[in-house]
Design a protein around this nucleic acid. Structure first.
Length: 610
RNA sequence: GCCCUUGUAGCUCAGUCGGUAGAGCGCGUCCUUGGUAAGGACGAGGUCGGCGGUUCAAAUCCGCUCGAGGGCUCCA
């Protein structure tokens, strides 16, 4: 297959060949795997006993520059399979390339690209001469499993990027630099929003007072929207009996990603008296013989139990149970990342119990909510993925007819959203299809935010029923939905979205009063008390500094609004208003300012720093 | 979990060849009473992530360990 790449892809793809050429010059014993272009650059995977160092990277880069200067020509060669094997052997790259050759389907064209002495099995395409690579940079070294399988050998991957011009490369690098400044881990620390403490545990977020304000504001905003849609709030505990999660299937099927169970006292005592070893205990866990409690990995079983605690008529449906429910999952240590990938998190969870006929509307309601909330926050840059079943797999529960209905309901709802969406087969959960919302973080990584999932499975496992118009029991359909995923991830991405410049309604500190001198303290104290009483998150900067210094500090602290008061203002009951978003706004009556400010907060106005 | 990198004051970082720590910012006190992004003086703060080893002597060299970062794998 001769794939035609875009000009930029060709540059990057060719850069990766030049990279491999340089590595082989410096480390002839290296075995090559693959080196494709990516969305932001390129990489090449090498198998080599020598561990690449930062200096190696510099040397390799220098060698690449030489090769580019040599202006080698990229030449395509189409060969038979036998010739291909011979070329690979002659070039001494049997370890991985023969396997890669086997991947080329019988009947497809087998092609190599040669530049100078270097030759690589490759479908193409490439630039014609190495000098066409005008701007590239090697960025990092990383481990990567051969064929992405952790059972295979881990190779060394060198990442780099390349652009058509030096300017574009520079621009990309500064853009990366700028983005890193908005990293929620950086800002979270600087602004005192959250803390992760070794002594508490990896991936466990401590929300500091300022971060807690943001979370609280978001939660009350979301709750208000839920109430409009007639959701009912519930609360459930952090642990539940193992049997509950055996019934739901979570404990047996997802043990690896859960904290081990809290073993029941009596059960533990019995094992101790039997002289159980740790490995016995571990086996009993696998076999499900132990009794105890599980830190909940999901809220649904508890919400199901609330639903099932009383009989339901079709007239009661849909029932919508919502909770900011905290769940715990044992994520691999290498996967943890600030607030975006953690081990304990609070989902903006809800479970809807409805009839088949109501399904479509319920899904639409969920999507409307997402649109409203993300719109208010100005987070328009998200993708929607509709995850469907793999038609050739039998790993799914429920009958095909229900799947068909659920998938159609989701697809129709997604269409109505007015946002581009992709359908992906084989990505569905085992119990039903889903819609996911995906956003990018500042360094381009994709994160799944919320999800809306249709579930025919759990109502069966828990034998849920409602009485229909025909006076017979019917099975409800469940919708799991957490439109923003978790408060942790959502806030993390929100920090990056705003770069710490939160709109006034969300800002931990909404307003700072800057008295110009001690002479006006009486006046500034009065304003402070007044605004505080009005529920505004206001502070007073009584430091013995000049105004310029106080303004500077307020800006560095990212306080969205300041009012400056001196003798002039005190005399006339005025304040001089300064906004982080709009700059110096001049003088106005304090009462007018206060009214306007309260309105600004109540309207949850979106404010963006230019 | 795996590979690579990394860990010095609250933050950002310096610390050459091993000779028991330094800067800026921040913080505290005092002076200064000021008009839209840094007024001045003085001062307090560190078992150099932890444990062990080599050495007369370790922030520095070695081993182990914990955490963090970038990837890979995983993500109901």
């Amino acid at each position: 297959m001769n794939e035609q790449m875009t000009p930029l892809e060709e540059i990057r793809h060719s850069s990766s060949h030049v990279l491999a050429t340089a590595v082989l010059r410096l480390f002839p014993e290296a075995q090559l795997d693959i080196g494709p272009p990516t969305a932001t650059g390129f990489y090449y995977d090498f198998d080599l006993d020598h561990k690449f160092t930062a200096e190696d990277l510099q040397n390799i880069e220098a060698e690449m520059k030489k090769i580019i200067k040599e202006n080698q020509r990229f030449q395509r060669k189409e060969v038979s399979r036998e010739e291909a094997v011979q070329i690979i052997k002659d070039f001494g790259q049997e370890t991985y390339k023969l396997g890669r050759l086997d991947d080329v389907p019988e009947g497809d064209t087998i092609s190599f690209y040669q530049n100078g002495d270097f030759i690589d099995l490759c479908a193409g395409s490439h630039v014609n001469y190495t000098k066409k690579i005008k701007a590239f940079k090697l960025l990092s070294i990383a481990g990567a499993y051969h064929r992405g399988d952790e059972n295979n050998k881990q190779l060394q991957r060198i990442y780099g990027t390349a652009f058509a011009t030096k300017d574009e490369l520079e621009q990309y690098l500064t853009q990366l630099e700028e983005a890193r400044k908005r990293d929620h881990r950086r800002i979270g620390k600087d602004m005192g929003l959250f803390h992760i403490d070794e002594a508490v545990g990896q991936g466990l977020i401590l929300w500091k007072p300022k971060g807690a304000v943001i979370r609280e504001q978001l939660q009350s905003f979301i709750t208000g929207e839920l109430n409009k849609q007639d959701y009912k709030q519930v609360f459930t505990p952090h642990i539940g009996k193992l049997d509950l999660y055996r019934t739901s299937g979570h404990f047996p099927y997802y043990q690896d990603s859960q904290y081990p169970p809290v073993i029941d006292r009596d059960c533990l005592a019995e094992f101790v008296s039997e002289g159980c070893t740790c490995s016995d205990l571990s086996n009993k866990m696998d076999d499900g013989e132990i009794d105890g409690y599980l830190l909940k990995p999901m809220n649904c079983p508890m919400h199901i139990k609330i639903f099932d605690s009383e009989p339901h008529s079709y007239r009661d449906l849909p029932v919508r149970l919502a909770e900011f429910g905290t769940v715990y999952r044992w994520e691999q240590s290498g996967e943890l990342n600030g607030m975006t990938r953690v081990r304990g998190f609070t989902q903006d969870d809800a479970h809807l119990f409805c009839t088949e006929d109501q399904l479509q509307d319920e899904i639409k309601g969920c999507l409307d909510l997402v649109k409203t909330v993300l719109g208010t926050l100005g987070m328009e840059d998200y993708k929607v993925r509709v995850s469907l079943r793999d038609p050739n797999s039998d790993k799914y529960v429920g009958d095909a007819e229900n799947w068909e209905k659920a998938e159609n309901a989701l697809r129709n709802a997604a269409k109505g959203l007015g946002v581009p969406f992709a359908e992906v087969e084989g990505e569905a959960a085992f119990y039903g299809p889903k819609i996911d919302f995906i956003v990018n973080d500042v360094i381009g990584r994709e994160w799944q935010l919320g999800t809306v999932q249709v579930d025919y499975n759990l109502p069966v496992r828990f034998d849920l029923n409602y009485t229909g118009a025909d006076n017979k029991p019917h099975r409800p359909v469940m919708v799991h939905r957490a439109p923003f995923g978790s408060m942790e991830r959502f806030c993390g991405l929100l920090i990056e979205h705003f770069g710490g410049d939160f709109p006034t309604w969300l800002a931990p500190e909404q307003l700072r009063i800057l008295p110009i001198s001690e002479k006006v303290y009486e006046y500034s104290d009065k304003l402070y008390a007044d605004l505080k009483a009005a529920g505004i998150r206001v502070t007073l900067d009584n430091a013995s500094e000049k105004l310029g210094a106080k303004i500077r500090r307020a800006e560095l602290d990212k306080v969205p609004n300041t009012i400056i008061v001196g003798a002039k203002e005190a005399e006339e009951g005025n304040v001089s208003v300064r906004s982080r978003f709009d700059g110096d706004r001049g003088t106005m009556k304090f009462e007018d300012f206060k009214t306007e400010f309260l309105e600004l907060i109540a309207s949850r106005k979106l404010q963006l720093k230019k």
